[in-house]
Amino acid sequence: MKSGRRLSSKSRTYLGMLIPVVILFFAFNTLPLIIGAFYSFTNYRGYGSWDFVGLRNYFDLFTDSRVWNSYLFTFKYAIVGTILVNVISLLMGLALNSKIRFKSTLRGIYFVPNILGGLIVGYIFSFIFTYIIPAVGETFNIEWIQNSILADERFAWIGVLIVGVWQAVAMNTIIYISGLQTIPEDVYEASRIDGAGKFLTFRKITLPLLMPFISINLVLSTKNMLMVFDQIMSLTKGGPAQSTESISYLIYRNGMDGGQFGFQSANAVIFFILIVTISVIQMRMTGKKEEQL
């Protein structure tokens, strides 16, 4: 009896601690999610009256060329970006974890891009793309860099990509370094004694043991790159000719100011479902590889 009462007072304390937090989370995460999903079935403009339109917004999404463009750009950006970021940061991680001098200083410097805000980094690179690189092109008579990459409809996305990768590599490198540090030295020792070369050791030892970190990095960088916003805001504002309009940016632009609250809500719902699906698939795939060890 006595112990029963004590237990219940304990769980009452637990509930008292947890319930306010859950309410807060519900109020500012789940509730707006539900509201957003609700408005996706209406023609709400963000103000004034509205009607239910059923699934019309969702059908319209598929025929809206601006929406298609934003998905094409965002996925092109995220796929190329994720691959580049992970290849570069894995190489950086290996390099910064090997027998080099000034190790901690170098690690410190290479992490700097991560602490700087995407918006300001975008402004700084915007100047580099618009003035410095064309000026270099003029001085050395290199024609193809004499115009700003950001002004070219075909290549502006590469400019955005360079900035996005520059920042993301910093974070992922640190994660790869901490992953490499979990691999004990004697595993390498053993493989060296067995006569395995550097590449074989990397493929058979480093890569499999690093799988959990590759998994984290893939999920993280894909998600972050799909949600690209700051760099677009400061580098191109979606231009030229909407060639670099990301999904987040389009939802912000047209949903907030463009009177497309309902329509962009439908867009956001699709975007949300895609992000969840992609993350789950990625975790499943890399999770399976981990098990094979």
């Binding site: 109020a27 500012f28 995460n29 509730l31 707006p32 999610l33 509201i35 957003g36 408005y39 963000g46 998600k223 799909l226 949600m227 999904i247 987040s248 939802i251 912000y252 949903g255 907030m256 609250f261 962009q264 809500s265 956001a268 719902v269 975007f271 949300f272 992000i275 969840v276 993350s279």
Partner: peptide
């Protein structure tokens, strides 16, 4: 963690 800000943004502004 997987809920993008884009979907919360408009309802949150109202809320």
């Amino acid at each position: 963690m997987f809920v993008p800000f884009a979907i919360l943004m408009m309802p949150l502004v109202k809320e």
